[in-house]
Simulated assay, not measured.
Amino acid sequence: MSETPSPRRPTAFRLDDPDVVVAGSREAPAGRIVVEPEPDDVPALPVPPRRRGFRWGRLFWSGVGGLVTLGIGLSVDRLVRDLFAREDWLGWLGLGLAALASVAAVAIIVREVAGIWRLARIDELRADAAAAVLGDDTPKAVKVAEGLVALYRERPQTARGRAAVAGHLGEVIDGRDLMVLVEADLVTPLDRAAQRLVADAAKKVSIVTAISPRAVVDLVFVLVTVLGLIRRLADLYGGRPGTIGFLGLTRHVFAHLAVTGGMAAGDGLVQQILGHGIAARLSTRLGEGVINGLLTARVGLAAIDVCRPMPFVAATRPGIQEVMGGLMPEAEAKTR
């Protein structure tokens, strides 16, 4: 029987010790300490598709909404009849106000439906782009490129990118290469703007929650800032959701964060705080502000994944360090 080797006892060492060898760099002589480095970034998982199909909850709320609408309609009809019975001019006034409210309700419904359709269109473009990249499918890549050009047709700042993409469509290019060009010409400029939005929101949360005297104020401010950030990112990438679409988008963002961001958030927070050597010098309030800012940045990065109309192909997915690069040096300078 072979003897089971006993596990090596924990050893304290310095990284600049000449006896410390990184695994894979060279063969470690006997007596040397071998360190196996871990990857810096956790690979981003694909955005899970939104659940579709028949739902009993949706049917229930549709029925309740229909009953409420009928009840409101009957109440308005009764009110208008009573107004006509009292005075004709009151009846006509009530009828005009009811017509005005009906027109506004139709406009709101149209806006909500259009917002939901745009979000569904972005999900479809992202799924088709991922399939085009994986399968090197040129026809599907051309379809995605045309869809992105149509999505941003009303954006003057995307005119140069749309012109470049239109020029690529007339060339013979592989599907994946076409997606790389479309990403660089049309989507990457939006990524830079999205990264600035996330960085500004995270730094604002860090500052306000560091000086706020009440935890309730911190909670409300963080919630309002995060929801506003999600809406601005959705508008930036072309989603422009209404109220109902925004609620569904927010739920999808937090679901994506729970799937892909749990481990990365913990690792990123520890590396950011300990890596800059300020954990022991930060005051309690300043430390809470930094943590809140980093968590806000994590939500913003998850929102970028969900709102972006195509997955990251050749472009580098922004991380905590890119978004919060200026926060830690500022916090460390304040503690000196």
Rank of each mutant, 00 (worst) to 15 (best):
E3S: 09
T4L: 14
P5E: 13
S6L: 13
T11P: 02
F13N: 05
R14L: 12
P18A: 11
V20S: 08
V20Y: 05
V21S: 06
V22L: 11
G24T: 04
G24Q: 05
S25M: 09
P37R: 06
E38A: 12
P39W: 00
V42L: 09
L45Y: 01
P48K: 04
P48A: 12
R50P: 00
R51V: 09
G53M: 05
G53T: 03
G57F: 00
G57K: 04
G57Q: 11
R58N: 11
R58Q: 12
S62A: 15
G66A: 12
V68L: 14
I72Y: 04
G73H: 02
L74A: 09
V76S: 03
R78Q: 10
R81E: 14
D82E: 12
E87L: 08
L90F: 08
L97P: 02
A99L: 15
A99T: 13
S102T: 10
V103A: 15
A104Y: 02
V106D: 08
A107Q: 12
A107G: 12
I108C: 05
I109W: 12
V113F: 12
W117Y: 06
W117H: 12
W117Q: 15
L119E: 11
L119R: 01
A120R: 13
R121S: 14
E124A: 13
V133Y: 02
V133G: 02
G135E: 14
G135S: 07
V142F: 00
V144D: 09
E146L: 06
G147H: 03
Y152M: 07
Y152N: 07
R153K: 11
R153H: 09
R153V: 09
P156S: 03
Q157E: 15
R162Q: 13
R162Y: 01
A163D: 15
A166K: 10
H168N: 08
V172T: 14
V172H: 12
D177A: 15
D177H: 07
L178N: 07
V180T: 14
V182F: 02
A184I: 02
D185Q: 06
D185A: 14
L186N: 10
V187L: 15
T188V: 14
T188D: 09
Q195L: 04
Q195I: 05
R196E: 14
L197G: 06
K203W: 01
S206L: 04
I207S: 09
V208D: 11
V208K: 07
A210P: 00
A210S: 15
A215S: 14
A215C: 01
L219V: 08
T225Q: 10
V226P: 00
L227H: 08
T243G: 10
I244E: 11
L247P: 03
T250W: 05
V253D: 10
F254G: 01
A255F: 05
A255M: 08
D267S: 10
I273G: 08
I273D: 08
A280P: 00
L282D: 09
S283H: 06
G289H: 01
V290L: 15
I291K: 00
G293L: 01
L294F: 04
T296P: 05
G300I: 02
A302R: 06
A303R: 00
V306Q: 04
P311M: 06
F312Y: 15
A314W: 01
A315S: 15
A315G: 07
R317K: 11
R317I: 05
I320S: 09
E322T: 10
L327T: 13
E330V: 03
A331C: 07
K334I: 06
T335A: 14
R336W: 02
